Simulated assay, not measured.
Amino acid sequence: PESTLVGWCGRAMKTLSPLIERIEADIMVSDLLHADDTPIRVLDRSRRDKGLGKGVKQGRIWAYVRDQRPWAGTSPPGAVYRFAPNWKEEHVLGHLADARGILQADGYKGYAKLYEPEPGGPSRLREAACWAHLRRDFHDFWASTKSEIAREALDRIGKLYDIERDINGQPADVRHAARQKLSQPKVEAFFAWSEQQILRIPGKSDLAKAFRYGLSRQEAFSLFLTDGRVAIDNNPAERALRPIGIGRKNWLFAGADTGAETLARAMTIIETAKLNGLDPQAYLADILDRIHDHKINRLDAILPWNWAPLNAAHSEAA
Rank of each mutant, 00 (worst) to 15 (best):
E90L: 09
A282Y: 00
I246S: 00
D166S: 09
A189K: 03
W71M: 00
A301Q: 14
H294I: 10
L252Y: 08
L223M: 05
D166N: 10
R48C: 08
A301T: 13
L199E: 15
M13S: 10
A99V: 04
L93I: 08
L278P: 11
I296P: 09
D98Q: 13
L310C: 09
A264L: 02
T38F: 12
S3Q: 08
A128G: 07
P243M: 13
G120Q: 10
D233E: 15
R22V: 04
Q218N: 11
A254H: 04
L288E: 08
Q218Y: 10
F224L: 06
T15M: 12
A172T: 00
R229W: 06
M28Q: 14
P70G: 03
R126M: 14
L252I: 14
F253Q: 04
I102A: 07
T145E: 00
P243E: 14
R126H: 11
P243T: 06
A112S: 14
L284I: 13
R175P: 00
L96R: 07
P76Q: 02
G53M: 11
T145R: 07
I291G: 01
G101K: 02
Q58I: 15
A313V: 07
Q58Y: 00
A129H: 05
L275I: 10
E219T: 13
E219C: 05
R165T: 09
A99F: 01
A35T: 00
A308R: 14
A143R: 14
L275D: 07
W251C: 08
R60Q: 15
R217F: 07
G158E: 06
E89C: 05
I232C: 04
D279T: 10
D31M: 11
L154H: 01
I244R: 06
A128C: 04
P171H: 10
H294K: 09
W87C: 10
P236T: 01
D155N: 11
R69H: 01
A210S: 13
I201L: 14
I291F: 11
K88Q: 09
V92Y: 00
I270W: 13
L182Q: 13
D36H: 13
G73W: 01
G78E: 06
Q58K: 12
R82F: 05
H139P: 02
G158H: 01
A63F: 00
D106V: 04
Y115N: 04
A208N: 09
D173R: 12
A150W: 02
D140G: 03
G101E: 04
V80H: 02
Q180A: 12
S183D: 08
L299F: 11
F83C: 08
A210K: 07
T145Q: 00
L299Q: 11
R82I: 02
V42N: 07
R179E: 04
A112N: 15
L225N: 02
V65W: 03
I163L: 08
G73V: 01
A192Y: 03
E164N: 09
D162P: 02
A35L: 05
G203E: 14
D137Y: 13
K113N: 08
L215Q: 12
L225S: 09
A282Q: 12
T145P: 02
W8M: 08
K209P: 06
I27T: 03
R124F: 03
L288D: 07
F141E: 02
A308W: 08
K50Y: 01
R298W: 09
R156P: 02
I270G: 03
R200H: 10
